[in-house]
Design a protein around this nucleic acid. Sequence first.
DNA 1: ATGAAAGCGCTAACAA
DNA 2: TTGTTAGCGCTTTCAT
Lengths: 345, 345
Amino acid sequence: MNENRPARVTIAAVAARAGVSPSAVSHVFNGRPNVSEATAARIREAADQLNWRPNYASRKVGGQGGHSLGLVVSRIGGRFERDPFFMRLIAGLTQPLAEIDWSLSLTLVLADDEQRVYREWWSERRVDAFLLVDVRDEDPRIAHVRELGAPAVLLGAPIEDAVPAVTVSDETAYDQVLTHLGDLGHLQIARVSDSPGLVHARDRDRRFTEAALRRGIAADVLRWDPTSPDPVADLLRRAGAATALVVDSEAMAAEIVAHAPEIGVRVPDQLSVVAWEDSWVSTLVRPRLTALDAPVEESARTAVQMLRRLVDGEQVSSQTVSGRRLIIRESTASPPSKKDETPSD
Amino acid sequence: MNENRPARVTIAAVAARAGVSPSAVSHVFNGRPNVSEATAARIREAADQLNWRPNYASRKVGGQGGHSLGLVVSRIGGRFERDPFFMRLIAGLTQPLAEIDWSLSLTLVLADDEQRVYREWWSERRVDAFLLVDVRDEDPRIAHVRELGAPAVLLGAPIEDAVPAVTVSDETAYDQVLTHLGDLGHLQIARVSDSPGLVHARDRDRRFTEAALRRGIAADVLRWDPTSPDPVADLLRRAGAATALVVDSEAMAAEIVAHAPEIGVRVPDQLSVVAWEDSWVSTLVRPRLTALDAPVEESARTAVQMLRRLVDGEQVSSQTVSGRRLIIRESTASPPSKKDETPSD
DNA sequence: ATGAAAGCGCTAACAA
DNA sequence: TTGTTAGCGCTTTCAT
């Protein structure tokens, strides 16, 4: 049968080479204390020489908890490909995962397949926990992972106790941006969002408007229409008398500052722009974007910790990580004074 | 012991519910033909009701080939976080992987850990194949995966037969860009690269220079120095009389077009810039980048096909996918005529 | 067409 | 301290 293929090296091979029983090897590799240091050393050496490590699948069948985190990103309108946030997230995730010897399984799905992927990955136990991002209003995934019994943590505002959340405190963010804009003299501003279905977007809409009102600043909520032939022009047309825009992602903000001058709106002279998210892209455009940087790496690390504890059967409750930091660059300035104000068109 | 935790649903449960033996269930789920359509239907229904799918780990222990692709990205100087190429790659990979029911395991590593991760993932059989990207000169990974006996495919120019490659044909790319630049009247150009160790960079250096020479265009090779406080100024200082730059990534190119005007070099009037790679970032900056777009999705799909065949034990040889397309935007124009040429300093 | 039984590589009680 | 043994959930001959 097995002609001459390199017989795969198993725990038995290692045991044989070290002159012990397989269980001794197992003990060593599972940190069990009942093996003499001498034998343990011999075993480790044998394993090294044969380049052996316990087969991941085998140990998992044996009832041992797994070590794989599932991240399922919904592929809506290139939201993944053109959002540097995901790069930061992935980078931030793999680091702490590696530390606890977990790996990251990643996939992009179309909306319709979303539930199916979660179900399949879980029922096959391909992954041992999920990280939920881009949580939407009435997000079906919350109920779904509950129902599956899959450990999960979500990034964003807490929804139910069912799934603990890692939240970036936006508390001070409103203050920071409104103070900044207020100090510059803006009296009428607008928030721009492209994904009205996302919980965090709605949340921000409400709280932003309230906070602005409290300061006597008129605040509007605008929607970015990606289907428009010229989303920026389209947006500015609807911006009315707003002299500053607070935009939900730096990708959108970048497009605005790049394109606005071309349709007669100078940034920041006539219009200030703040990005509610930061990345290397913010400094790629001119003027560079004033942005609210989120501690993505910290969120990721926190989520991983929570996930691990969940998988270990511990009780875990939602956590808040440090707030956003306003990084002032060049896309914000004082609004035009009444006299040199230019009519919208 | 196991008090009241929801007894996990196994193949036995499904079998019981369908009134058959476990092997019958297994047969159905492995497309074996020896089950009557009637029972098969009953079995599938039972599985659905219990939301059961064969446990991934268990089937893998049983000797069945796995379904997981490993992608290990070397984390050098934010190369991952700030390179949209990886987003395109990941997006392009997950699609065809999902079609064959594979998943993608992704991690970022520091240079020193690279080999270790490959070895660990393979010896644990956490993954069943690797995709090698950013192949460097004398890349140790080639020998390493060979030695491990791990199926692997690399993205880039073929190195040895050992590891089959998916290559984007650059043949016409040189022609396209040199024709474009030549037609505009450029006589002295330079190639800019930030990773001199990468095989594809070196390859391009050589072939680009040759192709330019053949057309009577003087071509230089410049290195981008990310450690410089102002890499763009630094670069332009070394650019000499070159009137056009062909830059290895759109991220670098974007920085150049954004920053050059600030240090007195107008793009494209005084300097033309071409990006050897394209993404949404190219149209974010002004002027928008003339760029050579690569068929990333096609490469990914091809790689996945090759990987699957490799894992199935088939012989696989390197493949070439369609060439780059030059997308002409606004960052290229005719060089300044002698008289209004400005001295570099 | 269906099922019994022997593994797959490992872990973990339990003996020795 | 060490080894024996019985699973883990599934696949796969091989009988029936």
